[in-house]
Amino acid sequence: MASTQSPQHQFAMVFDLNKCLGCQTCTVACKTQWTRGTGMEAMWWNIVNTMPGRGTPRDAFELGGGYRDGEPVPGRLPGRADWGEAWDFDYDEAFSPSSESSYLRPREHDGSAPRWGPNWDEDVGGGTYPNSYFFYLPLLCMNCTKPACLEACPRDSIYRREEDGIILVDEERCHGYRFCLEACPYKRIYFNEQRAIAQKCISCYPRLEAGVAPACVRQCPGRVRHVGHLDDPDSHIHKLVKKWKVALPLRPDFEVEPNVFYIPPTMPTAFDENGEFDEEASRIPLKDLRKWFGPGVDHALATIEAEREKVAGGGQSELMDLLISRNWQELLGPYTEDPGELPTPRRQ
């Protein structure tokens, strides 16, 4: 319903998929910081999925939402069985085992064994041996420039911050209708059944306001996550997205103009049928890469390859320096304050 005006700055992130370990430290950092309240047990505002995979919730990118030729695409609401529950574990049995085959079993609320959950298909991957492949894909709210969630809400309960373009749900206004969740093509909005409100990644805006990087960014041991302002020409974000054009939106065909960008996965060289290196082939089918990261992926991969070669040959590369970020603070953009040095905020 609401129109979105251009914010003063655009908060944005770049994730380097060639460095992500799939460790979920980001996921747990977010969980610990934000989703421990009532009704949030099964929420993972940040999640890292294994690709190719069905995602979180199950078949996340097949459920509709976003736009096609500017028209909203109807979406379907995933159910709890698609998201996965917050499991219980039989600690008693694990600590005082009744048999040698006892282990820490996860259980759903009705006692049954889980059949789906976050990053459920972690160890599936794609391709056929010896050209198997997989990569990790961290996901959170994309703070879109054309936020389908915001448009879908009949109550104007979602807004885009004027100062940095961060999309937030006003929990006081939200009546739990869930059109936002239907409309988000990435399915990065959760529904709190107990409070009957929508909740999602808030880009750690209270941390940003104190000059501290988001928890997922600061905690990432892989140095995967760059943050900053897309409109700041000196930022890593601007250089990677606009100058080098190696950081790409996910599923640009959703037409929501996300502000999270990905360095696409380069892969080990493929083998031909004789077991020899095939320099021409791609382990990940190019058509899949183009579907996930758009038509810019060819140029991005070629650029990364060329710059790598340059460094391997003893040369200098601004792009490689950016991606490596030898000083990890460089990843944090303007948000370099150490949270440990700040006064502890009072719990509300």
């Binding site: 319903m1 028209e71 909203p72 695409v73 109807p74 979406g75 389908a148 448009e151 879908a152 809400c153 009949p154 059109f179 239907e182 409309a183």
Partner: peptide, 10 residues
Amino acid sequence: RQPSAYVQVA
């Protein structure tokens, strides 16, 4: 009269 294009289309 639904106040969002999404709801009207969906």
